[in-house]
Design a protein around this nucleic acid. Sequence first.
DNA 1: GATGAATGAGAGTTCATTCAT
DNA 2: GATGAATGAACTCTCATTCAT
Lengths: 187, 187, 187, 187
Amino acid sequence: MEAKRENILMAAMEEFSKYGFHGSRIENIAKRAGIGKGTIYGYFDSKKTLFYEMIKYGIEEYIAGLDGLLAKDESLEEKLYHIYDFHKSYLRKCLDIRQAIMSEKEVLPKELMLDIIEDFKRISHSMERAIEEAIKRGELRKDLDPKIASIIIMGSIGQFYGNKMCPKNEADIEIGDLIDTLLRGLK
Amino acid sequence: MEAKRENILMAAMEEFSKYGFHGSRIENIAKRAGIGKGTIYGYFDSKKTLFYEMIKYGIEEYIAGLDGLLAKDESLEEKLYHIYDFHKSYLRKCLDIRQAIMSEKEVLPKELMLDIIEDFKRISHSMERAIEEAIKRGELRKDLDPKIASIIIMGSIGQFYGNKMCPKNEADIEIGDLIDTLLRGLK
Amino acid sequence: MEAKRENILMAAMEEFSKYGFHGSRIENIAKRAGIGKGTIYGYFDSKKTLFYEMIKYGIEEYIAGLDGLLAKDESLEEKLYHIYDFHKSYLRKCLDIRQAIMSEKEVLPKELMLDIIEDFKRISHSMERAIEEAIKRGELRKDLDPKIASIIIMGSIGQFYGNKMCPKNEADIEIGDLIDTLLRGLK
Amino acid sequence: MEAKRENILMAAMEEFSKYGFHGSRIENIAKRAGIGKGTIYGYFDSKKTLFYEMIKYGIEEYIAGLDGLLAKDESLEEKLYHIYDFHKSYLRKCLDIRQAIMSEKEVLPKELMLDIIEDFKRISHSMERAIEEAIKRGELRKDLDPKIASIIIMGSIGQFYGNKMCPKNEADIEIGDLIDTLLRGLK
DNA sequence: GATGAATGAGAGTTCATTCAT
DNA sequence: GATGAATGAACTCTCATTCAT
């Protein structure tokens, strides 16, 4: 059944994003999924396979969500608000798949790595296309490089929410002010 | 001897930042350090202890380097150039200690975690003070919030270099252009 | 299953009583029990835990056997014959749990130690009560101190069979003569 | 120097009789002896060798002490008093070498084992000869078997003091009464 | 001759994986 | 198909032994 597969993938996402690949235990994932340890092997060949598929699953979920937001008929400023929110709720669920990927690079086979890079590029491209449209609509200045803008936007998202270790730290910063500063620049 | 301790810490930094806590092997760290497995236990009580001390060591190194750059008598723009460079060389050496910390949060004891948060705050504060001075000197606009500016700068650094998975990806972007966009804004 | 736990305890008793705590190897215990090394950890938390439980198990077995013999409706002289025999067969199986306990005192936690002392007292008391009854029945002299008698009896048992190092040594001594001497005294 | 050798043997006796062969650490023995770890290897080839020589040393000390007591011109009853005292002080110093031997039998090579058995026989013989003389002097009854008497005496000593785990246990028993019971018998 | 830093074989323990039920 | 008891490879850590000082 497909539902059970997804159930396991969700459980894996929680566990892996919390403890990393080597720190996670198949038994715990099974417990999170409410099934027996051995059952997982009926759906996935090995711990590694499960890790790969969980990453693909997580990224696809993220891309789908992001594309949905970018496709809306809103100004870029409004979209950014929603993207920040979306990112936050995503972190809440699985901390950060990027962490899992980055810190376990050595576990991933080259082939999958290329897949993932392709996925990240898709995210970047979605964002870049949204920026291009915003330029055309006159929301952003004409001589802006969409790639650079994308880096700054995605980077500030990560920095803003990534420091989840010290939650109180940035509590007094409004997302609106952050977006405003991005748009107006530092100078 | 202190030099031998540092030698082990360097080796640990390489290994841990590559494989994470659970994925690293004491024996490999020993090999990197060119010593026997047991010798490590003459300098550190356990794998965990070594991990903690390596993190403290790595952060202190990073802070020292960053503070050195920020203290120079240069414009913020020039400083940012150097900081980007510094960050790049740092990544090259140990990939990213933040990765190690973030992805192994569960391994770290609360006390050390608070230490580390304090260290990260120190980094933020250093950056914020540099921004404040730049505002005073008229390099940045008067109504800029230093905290927000710091987030955007640090975030874009991480995003720009962090994606080391796909090195070719951003090859055609100049740091200068990135900094320029940060300063001028997207709008 | 409980049978499997007992199987492991028996194997542990053989190994521990032969090599002591530190000299015993979990892998050997597993081999004696005809199971895999890891299986033991499904039934016992650690080598120490296994050691503790094996001691409790062994003592309880010994007490049960001794009490059974003492409860029989026989003269003390007959009982002593049977006790000597019982002790011998016990030694044959596990050499001597007392050895394991005595020689690894430092391994045992205080709490368990008190438990064990209590068990040994129970053994002494059983013996003393049997002696008291023998006094009442007129088998032993009225002014005999049961505690002292118990020490002499238990001590001669240990001395007689404990010297298992040199089996031929005492081969020419009959248990009957030993018991007779105990009863009649040296003078 | 011979004094240093003896110093190490004494330290080894304390450590080995407390922790057994496998539980003892060369480093601790060195600390007890107030010397460096490596120094021990200037006097003994290995841990095992040290163990063997410590046992020989301890037994010889015991035999010498016992023979001294038995050679005195006293009644057997008086001698027994002194032997019990001697045994007690011996236990205080090194707990019990017999424990160390018994519980680490597997560590000892056959050749040494035969040596030790010979030593124990010498102890028994000394005791037996003392008993024979007592018989001749009319202190003990003529039809007494010295071997059996020796077992009972040595056994009650071990039982009386061996239970050092529960020191209060036998506190209310006088050695005099024990010896008296040995002499007069239980009946 | 004395030392203790360094070594690595070998111990206890964990956990991905299998398979009888 | 689902399970979890059993397994053993591979890990961390200890400690007898060596050897440069």
